[in-house]
């Protein structure tokens, strides 16, 4: 079901019988009708094992299932909300930035290290996010939170985009990621500091960047 953007910080969704959606716990602002909010004891779709896997992976953002018949409004922490519509492709997003998403989307985790090698592990350390990033795949809408709103930057072949890991929100498309460092940046911020690295995204797709280096 699609999200209707009421303003920059609030979205509205209509829930109907037989439909289901997931949202971050505590993100419901108001609702009308007969809607229930159930914490996901099983941690998404993957069962208990998967949940523990997520805990270890540092992707343990608690979700709840939203079901019933009515109108629900979502928002969280005064953060700006970006609605991303997926048409069969895969969205990679840090789990704690997920506000709400369509129940039909397939959830998974992406081991960033598999693409970035040893450097990918560094990435996990420096974003404080663990090595895993949540993936959502299919047809449906995702509402993502960002501090101060997001800018969508297109990624085209031959024109990779370098992103400060702290400002990275999500990306989709056929994109590979690796860590890189720009000339001089490492000397500037001091050795050992993760800030010296950027996430280099190349391929074909788009990356969402927030106007801030603050984590949520």
């Amino acid at each position: 079901m699609p999200f209707r953007e009421i303003n920059a910080k609030m979205v509205e969704a209509v829930v109907g019988p037989g439909q289901k959606m997931y949202s971050q716990r505590g993100a419901m602002l108001a609702y009308r009708g007969d809607v229930s909010f159930t914490p996901n004891v099983q941690g998404g779709q993957g069962g208990l094992g998967s949940m523990i896997g997520r805990r270890l992976a540092g992707e343990a953002t608690p979700l709840m299932t939203v079901e019933g018949n009515g109108l629900v409004m979502f928002g969280h922490g005064g953060h700006h909300i970006q609605v991303i519509n997926l048409a069969g492709d895969t969205l990679c997003v840090e789990a704690d930035r997920l506000l709400a998403f369509d129940g039909t989307l397939q959830q998974g985790t992406l081991f960033m290290g598999s693409q970035g090698g040893v450097m990918g592990m560094v990435r996990g350390q420096m974003t404080g996010q663990g090595l895993f990033t949540t993936t959502l795949k299919g047809h449906g809408a995702v509402a993502v939170m960002a501090h101060g709103g997001v800018v969508e930057l297109p990624i085209t072949p031959g024109r990779p985009v370098h992103v400060d890991p702290q400002a990275y929100v999500a990306h989709h498309g056929d994109v590979t990621n690796k860590l890189s460092t720009a000339l001089g940046l490492r000397d500037m911020v001091g050795r050992g500091s993760g800030e010296a690295f950027q996430l280099e995204l190349s391929g074909n797709g788009a990356v969402y960047v927030q106007a801030s280096e603050e984590k949520l």
Partner: peptide, 11 residues
């Protein structure tokens, strides 16, 4: 500690 509450029990 498993599951937690949904945070939406009270309105």
């Amino acid at each position: 500690g498993i599951g937690g509450t949904s945070g939406e029990e009270h309105q």
